[in-house]
Simulated scan of single mutants.
Amino acid sequence: MELNNLKSAPGARKARRRVGRGIGSGLGKTAGRGHKGQKSRAGGYHKVGFEGGQMPLQRRLPKRGFKSQSLKFNGEVTLTSLEKLGAAEVDLLTLKQAGLVGEMIKNVKVIKSGELKRAVKLTGIGATAGAKAAIEAAGGSLA
């Protein structure tokens, strides 16, 4: 095989569309653009969402809702998951290594869901009022 013998596979190189080159091409006269209207003109097009001057849908509907960007840095841990963890002292790094919170989490709060029987010392972690009572009842503490 030589470089001068190389050839594309049949049908691999499709001829480009030659518009406005006579009736025999099938794309003569209006060149596939139809008759009249903004879309038939050269340079005649509009921005996304434009509805011909009618008030666009995204402007007709009311503004609604808000999602805080700080939510992705806040995490929560249940009393049940603290029980399963089985560590005497728990901090943010311990929770990340155990996979209970994501890597991006900066603030963690313990919520009262389930039961806690062993004493756990929390450092740098917040807790709800109910969770705090449950932790202290089990002999644990918050620092």
Rank of each mutant, 00 (worst) to 15 (best):
92 L>F: 03
36 K>N: 13
138 A>D: 07
39 K>T: 11
135 I>V: 14
88 A>M: 09
1 M>I: 04
117 K>F: 12
12 A>H: 07
27 L>N: 09
76 E>I: 04
75 G>D: 08
65 G>M: 04
70 S>W: 07
100 L>I: 07
117 K>H: 14
72 K>V: 15
57 L>H: 11
128 T>S: 13
107 N>D: 11
3 L>N: 11
62 P>V: 04
14 K>L: 14
73 F>P: 04
135 I>M: 02
51 E>P: 01
138 A>I: 06
36 K>S: 15
24 G>H: 00
43 G>A: 08
8 S>W: 07
91 D>T: 01
111 I>H: 05
38 Q>P: 01
129 A>P: 01
40 S>Y: 07
91 D>N: 15
19 V>D: 06
21 R>H: 12
75 G>Q: 05
141 S>H: 03
83 E>A: 10
143 A>Q: 14
40 S>N: 13
85 L>V: 07
86 G>F: 07
22 G>T: 03
21 R>G: 05
50 F>H: 15
36 K>M: 10
77 V>T: 03
138 A>Q: 06
103 E>M: 09
60 R>L: 15
80 T>H: 06
93 L>E: 15
130 G>Q: 13
46 H>N: 14
7 K>R: 13
123 T>Q: 10
82 L>K: 01
27 L>G: 02
140 G>E: 06
26 G>E: 03
20 G>F: 01
77 V>M: 01
139 G>I: 04
20 G>A: 10
85 L>M: 08
